[in-house]
Design a protein around this nucleic acid. Structure first.
Length: 488
RNA sequence: CGGGACGUAGCCUAGAGGCUAAGGCACCUGGUUUGGGACCAGGAGAUCGGGGGUUCGAAUCCCCCCGUCCCGACCA
């Protein structure tokens, strides 16, 4: 297991792939564009799911499951929706050896099949709101894929709600965005910017799309979650009408919101280093690993002692394991557990045993110190909290260092560098997040993208009041504050 | 889907018309070791991406196909 990880400074893309493969999170699959999620990767996904799902339930949502296959005609009912997804659909044309009367698409997202049923379930305002979510995978025929970040099939969660009024649906959209923000920041240690998408970047079929955007170590942006206000677009397309409190027939108002296993990619690219994976303790499958230092005459005693320490850690609520394998050297194990991103490494040898101590090394900082074994459970919990906080703080500091306010086009271009193809996957790319005023024109945004690959990531929610000044791109009167970046 | 690079054991690499395709890592067995990726001995593992052709002889030369990676256009 002498694999080395390509340093970030040499090739950031290769570094990312090396981490995913060497930490055994995922692997390539026999099917082009798809990935295999391995146990260590899936365990992280399960922890993310658990945090999300808990909050969905707390906010009144229920889980459902809809079929993977959707009649082609359903997609076509919402014009923008089909236009947006048509290029990336996989279509089933045969079943049971015969050609199907109507082709079935493998869901790229489930708005259409869900709203087809909502028509049956919604008759009265008393049937509303309908607050459903499903955990599933979806398929989008992507041309260029990357483990976790963009694969043809991906694991995700999609919420689909129906409401009586516009205001209620809009409130739901923002409520779920806030759930995403909280999970991202508290559990994934990802500082995110919550904002609204520009017209060009919004979801096909939405009235408004909101998102949370995070900055990766190569200063590119990654969308970590989206929440859409769908207006009455799907209500009308699927004829979902209900009788209102006033006795009138009205179309239901809709939202949809999603996050995917891409979040795992975001966690990797935000926290990990050249030694391997670095995980927030709240996501780590194992929070602490005990590595015994086994020498001939004391091996049995040290091992027995480690078992006791392990029991103490577990009793304190720490997810801990003991690596008692005597066919590998401690040095090999250190490297291995660092690769796997275990937040705390506890070394116990004869010397420590005599003194009632244990050496504890932090994965995030590398700091190593001796602690009393008697109170090791409490110590570990304190250290895990400190790591969780440190990862967030470091990521936030990094984003601030690489965020620049720009007043005009010249400043923005200087920030990103003129070279439009420059990127090359190195950590040394120019730029980061640029914040500037924007006129709101689609053409203005498109011109920037064509020239520099820089796009508007979002219009941050908390900075849209009282805008005065000029668009930093074209000089027209500004209407928004925008965050610009190159993105994944 | 366009441009480029590359396919030799699970991984990395050597071989560049001529003996039984070579080495490192990983793997298996035994021994010895263990406070930052140990060491010794032995072992197993390859129809050289696939198909066709040239040749007395092809991993090596030619043609076709397939696949992977990188760079563009498109995207959670």
């Amino acid at each position: 297991m002498a694999e080395k990880i390509t340093p970030r400074s040499v090739d950031y893309s290769q570094w990312y792939i090396d981490i995913v493969l060497n930490a055994k999170l995922a692997d390539y699959s026999p099917v082009k564009g798809c990935m295999v999620v391995r146990p260590r990767g899936y365990a992280i996904w399960e922890r993310i799911q658990a945090e999300m799902d808990k909050r969905f339930k707390e906010t009144g949502h229920q889980n459902v499951y809809f079929p993977m296959l959707i009649p082609m005609s359903f997609l076509k009912k919402e014009a923008e929706h089909v236009e947006g997804f048509a290029p990336e659909l996989a279509v089933v044309t045969h079943g049971g050896g015969e050609e199907l009367d109507e082709p079935l698409v493998i869901r790229p997202t489930s708005e259409t099949i869900i709203w087809a049923k909502y028509k049956d379930w919604i008759q009265s305002y008393r049937d509303l709101p309908l607050l459903y979510n499903q955990w599933c995978s979806v398929l989008r025929w992507e041309k260029r894929t990357r483990l976790f970040l963009r694969t043809a099939e991906f694991l995700w969660q999609e919420g689909h709600t129906a409401h009586e009024t516009q205001g209620e649906a809009e409130a739901e959209t923002l409520k779920m965005l806030e759930v995403y923000r909280e999970v991202a920041e508290r559990h994934l240690c990802l500082p995110v910017i919550a904002g609204k998408k520009s017209e060009a970047e919004k979801f096909a079929g939405a009235v408004a799309t909101y998102c949370i955007e995070a900055m990766m170590q190569d200063k590119k942006a990654l969308q970590a979650g989206t929440s859409h206000f769908l207006g009455q677009n799907f209500g009308k397309a699927f004829d979902v009408q209900f009788q209102s409190r006033e006795g009138k027939l009205e179309y239901a108002w809709a939202t949809s919101w999603g996050t995917s296993a891409r979040l795992i990619g975001a966690v990797i690219m935000t926290h990990s280093d050249d030694k391997g994976l670095v995980l927030p303790p709240s996501l780590a499958p194992e929070q602490a690993v005990i590595v015994p230092i086994l020498k001939k005459d004391t091996a049995a005693a040290v091992l027995a002692y480690c078992e006791k320490v392990l029991a103490g850690l577990r009793a304190a609520g720490v997810r801990a394991i003991l690596d008692g394998d005597d066919t590998q050297s401690p040095g090999w194990k250190f490297a291995q557990h660092e690769m796997n991103g275990v937040p705390l490494r506890i070394e116990i040898g004869p010397r420590d045993m005599e003194g009632g101590k244990a050496m504890v090394a932090r994965r995030d900082t590398g700091e190593k110190a001796a602690y009393d074994v008697a109170s090791l459970g409490a110590t570990a919990l304190t250290l895990l909290d400190a790591i969780q906080k440190n990862l967030y703080d470091k990521a936030l500091a990094f984003r601030k260092e690489n965020t620049k306010a720009v007043a005009d086009r010249a400043e923005l271009l200087a920030f990103y560098g003129k070279d439009k193809g420059e990127d090359a996957g190195t950590a040394a790319v120019a730029g980061g997040f640029a914040e500037g005023l924007w006129c709101g024109s689609r053409e203005c945004e498109a011109a920037l993208k064509a020239e520099t690959k820089v796009t508007i990531r979002c219009l941050p929610m908390d900075r849209q009041e009282g805008i005065t000044g000029k668009c930093c791109l074209c000089g027209s009167p500004a209407r928004h504050t925008a965050v610009f970046a190159r993105n994944y």
